[in-house]
Design a protein around this nucleic acid. Structure first.
Length: 606
RNA sequence: GGGGCCGUAGCUCAAUUGGCUAGAGCAUCGGACUGUCGAUCCGAAGGUUGAGGGUUCGAGUCCCUUCGGCCUCGCCA
């Protein structure tokens, strides 16, 4: 076998005259009857091979039979391309290899789709033929970026004295949070492991164990429906540190993120990064993951709207709700009445809004007037106030929702992002990082008549708020922090509770009884009793970070072997049924089998 | 569990109100061609229109069922 001396992205004019061997896949071929050209591809690039029938009849003859995706090795001499024949699109475009010897290492069936144009190819086909899809330059680039990021991560933490420690994949099921993937135990009949949703308790126990600084690039599993940016199986950069406060954790990670953005994209991200309280984010953007590439803040105009004659507004406010909305700069020309009442209203209805009120802003004799649906319900004074609240200008469009504050935010936040996207209000290449801090510790769950953790049950309250554990739980602030980029949450963490008594109190508020707490987290609570140091950490979503760096909105593009929206791997056909023998060993019986057993035999059929 | 979009040749797409033998480009196969790089030129082959049922003289097109993909609400401590 010919052994390669160079790769296909390497050769330049300075290599002219060298005798080289290249190996790779036939990317394309151009057969002139006389001369034959082959663009040879490997992971580093493309190099043109040229076959001359007079000089090397043997190699030329063989080259004419080669087809796309055949695997070949070619030995020859690097020569400059003659005047005007250079290809400026290729880094290797100024040279070519005049082939003397060609070895076909393997032939290929005609590929199910063409490598060059796979951008347009049906994703189902790409997933079923992933090995072909991954040959595409873009996908190779994504894999490479992912590798480089994990390398930066490991170097960063190594330099700071962190240890990368593996935690179990076969773990204990905890009914909180997302649905678990279960793994039946063979040795313990009727018992199950769960695949980890995150190594949360293990990493905290590592702190109790004196590890001090831990990190892990770790697979996590949550059995919930996937989305464009979410897969049941995903990767976290998981970190925990002892003897730290929020600022320590934030500092280590904003430096890491700045380093990643710098090394991968050459983009300088300022550290320290901007911070914003949860309340500020909710008030101004309606979400705890605001996209700060554009402004268009939400405004609450309940105080003005309650003076209006519009019952939808006044009643909503009487019921404890708000009238909140946004002002679309120049929106009155961009959106027609039908756009607003159909497209935009439909849009917010998807998010549970009952309706969308609107008015176009005009100016007459130096005074603002409203045009459209809402105009008649407001007095002149109120209109001036509204315009002032939104800093409106002539030609703007006001969009308002009247509802409970939570519901209004739920619809307005995505509406704000949609409008900005439609109107191209931001630079697609910009990155706006922000830490969201001072989350509430708890959230009242009306259905269950109890509090829910906003982050997770091990999050520490801020020390000053500890006394509110009894008196005013809903106003306890937590020491949690999320890192948000362009409206995407790429990580979150907290300082943890390290005192068993505090932990017990929080469990009570969550209506987790002592007995339940013992059953689920007993091992962990016991660990806290043996000198747990103050500690905290974070988990960054690796997949989402790579999505931002590669500019894709599709998480499957940054995972080598992803699953579909129904959790299938189209390449391997997982999940699949298993042999009865395997089930027997696990002491399992599927419902279908049990139904089959219960069904009376034969006589039913006919 | 709900809503939306989609499925026609190997691939990307077309096919007027339901109306001729379902077309085109690329790929494939055969031929021509010594400087191409989306090579070019000539020719050929290639279809259970995702599957099943229905309406109709006639269905890629309309209706029902079903399978699959994507987006999304719920869900994701």
């Amino acid at each position: 076998m010919l052994k390669r001396t160079h790769n296909c992205g390497q050769l330049r004019l300075k290599d002219v005259g060298k005798k080289v061997t290249l190996a790779g896949w036939v990317h394309s071929y151009r057969d002139h009857g006389g001369l034959v050209f082959i663009d040879l591809r490997d992971k580093e690039g493309l190099t043109q091979l040229v076959f001359n029938p007079e000089k090397q009849p043997e190699a030329h003859k063989s080259a004419r039979t080669a087809r796309c995706e055949w695997v070949i090795a070619a030995k020859g001499v690097v020569q400059p391309r003659s005047e005007g024949m250079a290809n400026p699109k290729l880094p290797t475009g100024q040279i070519e290899v005049a082939v003397q010897q060609l070895e076909v290492l393997n032939i290929s069936k005609t590929p199910p789709f063409e490598i060059g144009e796979a951008d347009k190819i049906n994703e189902e086909l790409r997933l079923a033929n992933r090995y072909i899809d991954l040959r595409r330059h873009k996908m190779q680039e994504n894999l490479r970026i992912r590798h480089r990021v994990t390398k930066v991560v490991r170097d960063h933490f190594d330099r700071l004295g962190f240890l990368e420690i593996e935690t179990p994949m076969l773990a204990k099921s905890t009914p909180e949070g997302a649905r678990d993937f279960l793994v039946p135990s063979r040795l313990h009949k009727n018992c199950f492991y769960a695949l980890p949703q995150s190594p949360q308790l293990f990493k905290q126990i590592l702190m109790v164990s004196g590890v001090d600084k831990y990190f892990q690039i770790v697979r996590c599993f949550r059995d919930e429906d996937p989305r464009a940016d979410r897969q049941a199986e995903f990767t976290q950069i998981d970190v925990e540190m002892s003897f730290v406060d929020s600022n320590d954790v934030i500092g280590v990670h904003e430096n890491l993120l700045a380093k990643i953005w710098n090394k991968i994209l050459g983009v300088d991200v300022k550290a320290p990064m901007r911070r914003m309280t949860y309340k500020e984010a909710m008030d101004n953007y309606g979400t705890d993951r605001p996209d700060l590439r554009f402004d268009m803040k939400l405004k609450d105009i309940s105080d003005i709207a309650k003076m209006s004659t519009f019952e939808v507004f006044t009643k909503a406010i009487e019921a404890g709700g708000v009238v909140k909305g946004l002002c679309v700069a120049g929106g009155s020309e961009k959106y027609t009445r039908s756009d607003i009442e159909k497209t935009l209203t439909e849009f917010v209805k998807d998010y549970g809004a009952k309706g969308l009120m609107w008015a176009k802003v005009k100016k007459e004799n130096d005074k603002f007037v409203l045009v459209g649906g809402l105009a008649k319900f407001f007095g002149d004074e109120q209109i001036q106030q509204i315009a002032k609240r939104f800093s409106s200008k002539e030609g703007d469009l006001l969009l308002l929702i009247a509802d409970g504050e939570k519901n209004a935010n739920k619809a307005l936040a995505p509406l704000r992002c949609k409008l900005a996207k439609d109107l191209k209000l931001y630079d697609e290449k910009a990155f706006e990082f922000v830490w969201i801090v001072e989350f509430p510790l708890l959230e009242w769950n009306e259905d269950q008549k109890r509090y829910d953790s906003l982050h997770h049950p091990f999050t520490s309250p801020v020390p000053e708020d500890l006394e509110k554990l009894e008196s005013d739980p809903v106003n306890i602030r937590s020491q949690a922090y999320d890192i948000v980029v362009n409206g995407a949450e790429i990580g979150g963490g907290s300082i943890r509770i390290h005192k068993p008594k505090v932990q017990q109190k929080v469990f009570e508020l969550l209506k987790i009884s002592r007995k339940q707490a013992q059953q689920r987290f007993g091992f962990f609570l016991r660990a806290l009793e043996y000198g747990a140091p103050p500690h905290g950490g974070i988990a960054l979503g690796l997949d989402r970070i790579i999505m931002l760096l590669t500019g894709t909105e599709n998480i499957r593009d940054v995972i080598a072997f992803p699953k579909t929206q129904r959790g299938q791997c189209l390449l391997t056909d997982a999940p699949s049924e298993v042999d009865q023998r395997q089930l027997d060993e696990l002491n399992l019986r599927t419902q279908r089998h049990s139904h089959a057993v219960e069904q009376p035999p034969e006589e039913q059929k006919q």
